[in-house]
Amino acid sequence: MKKIMLAQTSPILGELNKNFLKHLDDIDRGIEEKCDLIIFPELSLTGYCLRDLVYDVAINGEHEIIRKLIDKSHKISIVFGFVYLDEHGLVYNAGAYLENGVLSYLHKKVFLPDYTMFEEGRYFARGTTVNGIKTQMGDTTLLICEDALHISSAYAMFRRGVSTVIIISNSPARGVYKEQFYSKSMWETVTKFISMSLTSYVIFVNRTGVEEGITFWGGSHIFNPFGDKIIGLPMISESYKTIEIDINDTSRARINSPFYRESNNIVG
């Protein structure tokens, strides 16, 4: 069994150091509660509506903040979001998976929303791969928000046979209608679909708080490999919840739903 803490936080816009200190407090809380993994939302170190602040908060893998977080990962695995500055001076909307004192995986967001209220393509360079790694959570993939909405990401994960999909998000509340709340409805449909079609755990961690009139709706949740929602965090308010999951459930789910067995037979 693995104990996970979902940290549904609300970062301060553009305040790298203040957000980092809050990460440390939250990580210590996760360690105290004997968690194996703590997951923060997308851009948890920086906030979302950065615009020109992007260049002020971009850091590389050698930055003191990253080194200190890596050091913390001896005691607990950590997933968080930040603006990554590469050696060519390009900035990425990135997510890191830290485990056993190592930056195990750095995911650069591939699908940058650049429509309606979004303008990520204006600032960020595009990642090129949806990959994964072996972690204590099994074969794990880390996606950032919009990445998870593209069927090609699901296919890439399908080919890997991932057992745990972690989606870190900054999903805004929009389309709040009587018949449905668009953001919540869309995400819970997508995460449930991925969990059932990939027969894997899908862990969705979304932020809260308000930036520039935009409310991030929270509602972090986990679907198990059977497509059951096993935990849901409240909407809109900051929240921390822990849950134990059995990653071997993937094998059990794949007896009744052996979709992965047939996954290599469609295209080359």
Partner: peptide
């Protein structure tokens, strides 16, 4: 175009408080 009244209230009061 009917809105979800409960969620709207939550969003708007939280908006005023935070902003």
């Amino acid at each position: 175009m009917d809105i979800n009244l409960d969620i709207c209230t939550h969003i708007l009061t939280n908006f005023i408080s935070e902003e």
